[in-house]
Design a binder for these strands. Structure first.
Lengths: 331, 331
DNA sequence: CTGAAAGCGCTAACAA
DNA sequence: TTGTTAGCGCTTTCAG
């Protein structure tokens, strides 16, 4: 029983009068064990309240049974939903999910990634914040699969699960144009963010396809919070020449813009990227670029587990499709 | 380098021409090491791409550096928000969070709890689904602290972090009564759920304080999804004698009820337990029993870490307060 | 089918 | 300040 107070296999073996290895066999359900012995061992396990030490088992066997997940921002429900999906897939394989967050800080990401590797995770799902992931090269080489999620990584061979950002934005804006809107505002979060770059590209493509171009006066970026988006929208509404439609590049922006529009009772058509809770209860009909959030997590986890089973054979990028849907319109 | 391909402290020691223990000292930043040696070791670490094996370290030292969290339902954003808060607190202490979910199944909860213990977690935060936690008695006795969250556990000495369910529900219903409402509907999720029992008690207290009692015809329980709540509310509205107010015992119920009410354009005052995303954007003013979700997680994590530091001295139950707030009313 | 011995990679205890 | 030895609790290897 030594220090920790927890009984070990040795204690069980002594109690049952068998060898250490026999206990190990019983605990791990290995086939060739005499039923009588198995019974004796089981009884001792019960009596002593034995629980195997999974750390020791992993150390010796080299089995890796946890997946590390590094989100970019835990206060964002998007990542939490992804984490939930990853956890569900992991559970199917009796793996556990260690959930962390870089809080959009590159150094934190790096620290966490290496920390998780030290804990011998079987794989890593990362929402990249750093723009160089060479620091993981060694681990990947040594057999720890890495999957990037939502944004691409760089510097190492790793799969990536991304949204069809460009296609989704293009479709939304194309529809506004097709509906005859000519003064279309575009509200963006920070341009440096990967998804923003891609969605903006989609916006430009839609305009180009219609033989037009976005009006620079109606394009506002750097809107990182709903409050900023609300104020920006407010200013557009207050300007002499308000837009007749607006495309919002993510849900925080959409929510902020809606706050301004609904409060002002303005007649502005709204299309936004990302669905959000309760969009269905909005008093106004809006168009949303929707996708299956958990699909991102599920695919990331499945890709990771597949890689863990069969070592690297060239990395792939999976695009998760989007679709335009109606929301709101109650009342 | 043996099997795994990963260099070990032995490799580093050999490369640097020092002893194993010296490497260990350098890696762990122990004070009394000659700077020159430290440098040599650091150089070897760099050259070999050495990373310490945290599993081996924990096995030997007995240090436990992860916290296990068993949510009841990962699709519920409430638990995800709690998990995020726990993760944030854990990160402060350089601990990691292993996130799992019982999916409201008692056997799964038990399995996960024991599995996490086998992985030598430093503590367990559990949203109880099982109604007897005696299976954890042994682990608690052996020094693994357990904190129950949102619902009380039983059978073992453990702290609990609960919401003031009764007080919140009482306040909400008291206000509806004070506003002169006499036909007040009460929509509940399944009665067996702890929070429902407590909130229902609050409802009864409020009625009793006003010298009245709830009208059984207007009390509907078992509403586990927004769709069920919507349909139930619909039936109430369609009945000859519709209520003038409704108290919804959780956010799913509130959302479902609102859907029916807004669609029908009915004049029904709404008060609900639990805030939800975008409640502010609702076209109607409603009253919400609000509380700080992350506070629950933060307190749970802090309580757990405190217990881990200073062994049991009688378990406590913490009540997280609620407050009535206004939501909606845009337009 | 069962057991003895070795050792996973590290840290604790003690010596030098 | 540095090194030696033992051993955390388990699985692997190989012999019986």
């Amino acid at each position: 029983m030594r220090k920790t107070g927890r009984p070990t296999m040795i204690d069980v073996a002594a109690d049952a009068g068998v060898s250490l290895k026999t206990v190990s066999r019983v605990i791990n359900g290995e086939p060739s064990v005499d039923p009588g012995m198995a019974e004796r061992v089981a009884a001792s396990v019960q009596r002593l309240g034995y629980h195997r030490n999974a750390l020791a088992a992993s150390l010796r066997s080299g089995n890796r049974d946890t997946i590390g997940f590094i989100a970019a921002d835990l206060s964002n429900t998007f990542y939490m939903a992804v984490a939930a999906a990853v956890s569900a897939v992991a559970a199917r394989d009796r793996m556990h999910l260690v959930m962390t967050s870089s809080e959009e800080d590159a150094d934190t990401e790096r620290f966490l990634a290496l920390d998780l590797c030290q804990r011998q995770v079987g794989g890593l799902i990362v929402v990249p914040t750093a723009d160089d992931h060479a620091y993981l090269a060694r681990e990947v080489e040594l057999g720890t699969p890495v999957v990037f999620l939502d944004r691409p990584g760089s510097g190492i061979p790793a799969d990536a699960i991304l949204l069809d950002n460009t296609g989704g934005a293009r479709a939304a804006v194309a529809e506004l144009l097709a509906a005859g809107h000519r003064r279309i505002a575009v509200l963006l979060d920070r341009r440096g963010i990967f998804t923003m770059t891609q969605r903006w590209a989609g916006v430009e493509e839609a305009f180009a396809a219609a033989g037009r171009a976005p009006d620079p006066a109606l394009v506002i970026d750097g809107l990182h919070t709903p409050a900023m988006a609300r104020d920006a929208m407010q200013r557009l509404l207050d300007s002499g020449d308000a837009p007749t439609a607006v495309f919002c590049a993510n849900n925080r922006v959409t929510i902020g813009a809606l706050e301004a529009i609904l409060t002002a009772g303005a007649e502005v058509a709204v299309a936004g990227f990302d669905d959000f809770e309760l969009s269905r209860l909005l008093p106004r009909r809006i168009r949303i670029v929707d996708y299956d959030v958990s699909d991102l997590g599920t695919r990331a986890a499945e890709t990771l587990l597949a890689r863990a089973a069969v070592p690297a054979t060239g990395s792939q990028t999976h695009l998760v499709p989007t679709r335009l849907v109606d929301r709101g319109g109650i009342h």
